[in-house]
C-alpha cells in the first residue's frame, strides 16, 4: 500500500476506509490473501502397505507434493494420519521409532512456511502404516478438530469394511472442500494370482475362499470399476472431487494433470 495518490492512479485502488479514518489517500497496490488451511488425511492403515510400489509410499509422495505446494503458497498444512498408533513398543528400537513417529505426527498437525518444507518432508518420511483404518471415525474427528475449514485431501484406498460415507459427509458438513484420492495397488486392480485361494484380510483377519482364474479376471475388474464408480458418484453428488490412481501411476500424472484439470490448484 502506497500513501499519496497521483493523478495517474486509478480511483478504484484507493482505500476509502483509511481515507475516512485518517483523512489521507492510500492506494492499494496488492491484495493480501487469507491463509488457506490445507488438511491432508493420510490413511496409514495396514492395507496401505500392500502393492508394488506400496500404496502408502505413493500416498506419502502425494502428501509431500500437496504440502509443499501449500507451504509455498503460505498456507497452513495439516497432515492427519490415521489410525492412531495403538501398538505398544516391545523393545528399545521400536520405542525409538515410535517416539520419532509420534513426534512426526505431532509436528505434521500444523506446518507453515516454505522454510519448513524440509522438516515437513522428513516428518513424512518417519510415518509408518499399521493397524485397522477406522476411516469414518478418523475423518469425523478430523472435521471436528479443525478450527477452520479449508481444503481437505483424503488419501486412502477406501477399502474399509465400515464404508467411507460417514467420514466424507462429516468433512463436507464442516465446510471442507474435499478432494478424495483413491489409491489402489496394481494387484488389486488386476490380480495375477489364480487358483483356489483362501484370502486373509490384513486388517481384520477375515478369511475369504475364492477360486479365481483368468476367465474371471474381467468380472473382477468390473467389480472394482463398480466400486470406484459408486465412490465417484458419491463424491460428485456432494461436491467433492474424486481422483483414482494406482500406486504405480506416475506422480506427475496425478498432480499435474488430474488435480490441475480439477482446479484443485492453479
Amino acid at each position: 500500500m502506497r500513501s499519496g495518490a497521483r493523478k495517474v492512479d486509478d480511483f478504484r485502488y484507493l482505500d476509502w476506509n483509511l481515507y475516512g479514518r485518517l483523512d489521507r489517500l492510500f492506494l492499494k497496490l496488492y491484495e493480501e490473501e487469507r491463509e488457506l488451511p490445507v488438511t491432508v488425511f493420510l490413511d496409514a492403515s495396514e492395507s496401505m502397505t500392500f502393492g508394488e510400489p506400496r500404496k502408502f509410499d505413493f500416498a506419502r509422495q502425494v502428501t509431500a507434493a500437496v504440502g509443499y505446494v501449500a507451504l509455498c503458497g503460505f498456507d497452513r498444512v495439516s497432515v492427519v494420519t490415521f489410525p492412531d498408533l495403538s501398538q505398544e513398543p516391545t523393545n528399545e528400537s521400536e520405542l525409538k521409532t515410535r517416539s520419532q513417529e509420534l513426534a512426526a505426527r505431532g509436528a505434521l498437525r500444523s506446518v507453515r512456511g516454505r522454510k519448513s518444507a524440509l522438516q515437513f518432508f522428513q516428518n513424512i518420511n518417519h510415518l509408518t502404516a499399521c493397524g485397522a483404518a477406522a476411516f469414518n471415525e478418523a475423518l469425523r474427528r478430523g472435521a471436528l478438530q479443525a478450527r477452520q475449514a479449508g481444503v481437505a485431501v483424503v488419501l486412502s484406498d477406501f477399502l474399509d469394511p465400515a464404508g467411507y460415507e460417514t467420514g466424507l459427509t462429516a468433512l463436507v458438513g464442516r465446510g471442507f472442500q474435499v478432494n478424495a484420492v483413491q489409491i489402489l495397488a496394481p494387484d488389486e486392480l488386476a490380480p495375477a494370482t489364480y487358483g483356489d485361494l483362501r484370502l486373509i484380510d490384513s486388517e481384520t483377519g477375515a478369511q475369504q475362499e475364492v477360486t479365481f482364474g483368468k476367465y474371471r479376471l474381467n468380472a473382477y475388474k468390473q467389480t472394482v470399476q463398480n466400486f470406484c464408480q459408486r465412490l465417484r458418484e458419491y463424491c460428485s453428488s456432494r461436491g467433492m472431487h474424486f481422483f483414482m490412481a494406482g500406486s504405480n501411476t506416475p506422480l506427475e500424472e496425478l498432480l499435474l494433470k488430474q488435480l490441475r484439470e480439477a482446479e484443485v490448484w492453479g
Binding site: E46, S47, M48, T49, F50, G51, K55, D157, L159, D160, P161, A185, E188, T193, G195, D196, L197, R198, L199, I200, D201, S202, E203, T204, A206, Q207, Q208, E209, V210, T211, R216, A219, Y220, Q222, T223, V224, N226, F227
Partner: peptide, 21 residues
C-alpha cells in the same frame, strides 16, 4: 480342493466380486 492361503490388503473387493458372481 486345496486352497492356497494368501494375505491380501482387504477382502472387501473380493466379497463384492463373489456377491456379484
Amino acid at each position: 480342493r486345496k486352497r492356497v492361503v494368501r494375505l491380501v490388503s482387504s477382502t472387501l473387493l473380493w466379497q463384492k466380486f463373489l456377491a456379484e458372481t
